[in-house]
């Protein structure tokens, strides 16, 4: 396995596995709550956060995570009580984030070349310190799902029943959006802004096609994501392909196979 003899590949696979598993689990909850497009909205909103962090000269990961967290919670706030439709709020932050990035680029010249690197990401260029940040975020995301799993399942299937069981709906929604924001920032690290939402949507969608229960959907989504990450990095390594495209391509191929199986078996 020549692949594993390089430390940059090892770091890439480790990062990809953590990001893939975290985003796939979050994806199952988001898709079932009809919030699949939240990923695309927040990843583009994060573009604005990255631009600001470059303008201020601070670490892009932490500031972008905080920025995306703020934007995600604003989306949740303005959509609660149906004040603004959810899809419209996501479209708002989607374009708002990109507009912010373009404005920052226009005002502060000289770092567009650094900013554009975030559009497609490169998982094989992860540094040790970035790997540590990803690991910490990954464990925080896992901890959240482990602690609140039951409440989240209740909330996903029926807000009314969740209310009857004393689940604090508002708080829970804000927490889920916060975790989704963190997961999006992790996904940007792996596949870039443009493809980040695929990490959330595609493995979860595949799992929901073939799983027999909610729990199995979560497990299958994580497995599909982990498999696609390894397949994508291996293909990228041996055929000199862009890793982000290869990973997402792998995820879509698995989805295609699952869909075909579903169609044929019905």
């Amino acid at each position: 396995m020549e692949l594993l003899s390089y430390d940059f590949v090892q770091r890439g696979i480790l990062t990809g596995l953590m990001v893939g598993v975290a985003s796939a689990i979050a994806g199952v909850f988001l898709i079932l709550r009809r919030m699949a497009f939240l990923g695309a909205g927040l990843s583009h909103a994060a573009f604005g956060g990255i631009a600001i962090s470059m303008l201020l000269g601070v670490d892009p990961f932490i500031l972008t995570a905080l920025f995306t967290l703020l934007v995600g919670n604003i989306v949740q706030l303005i959509t609660s009580n149906r004040r603004v439709p959810g899809d419209a709020a996501i479209a708002l932050v989607f374009s708002g984030g990109v507009a912010l990035a373009v404005l920052v680029l226009g005002v502060a010249k000289g770092f567009s070349e650094y900013l554009f690197g975030y559009l497609f990401g490169n998982i094989l260029m992860v540094t040790r310190s970035e790997l540590i940040l990803v690991s910490i975020s990954f464990f925080l995301v896992l901890l959240f799902f482990a602690i609140f799993y039951r409440k989240l399942v209740l909330l996903t299937f029926s807000e009314e029943i969740a209310k009857l069981r004393d689940v604090k709906i508002g708080l829970m929604n804000h927490m889920l959006v916060s975790v989704a924001s963190l997961v999006i920032v992790l996904s940007i690290k792996a596949v870039g802004i443009i493809l980040a939402s695929s990490m959330i949507v595609v493995p979860a969608l595949t799992a929901l096609l073939i799983a027999s229960s909610f729990r199995s959907a979560v497990v299958i989504a994580a497995v599909v994501s982990a498999f696609s990450v390894i397949l994508g990095i291996a293909l990228a390594f041996y055929y000199d392909l862009p890793p982000s495209g290869a990973i997402v391509g792998g995820m879509i191929a698995v989805f295609g196979a699952a869909f075909l199986k579903r169609v044929l078996s019905s």
Partner: peptide
């Protein structure tokens, strides 16, 4: 300014 490293470059 906008070059993206390929896998073979990183290798």
């Amino acid at each position: 300014h906008h070059y993206e490293l390929s896998v073979s470059d990183i290798l």
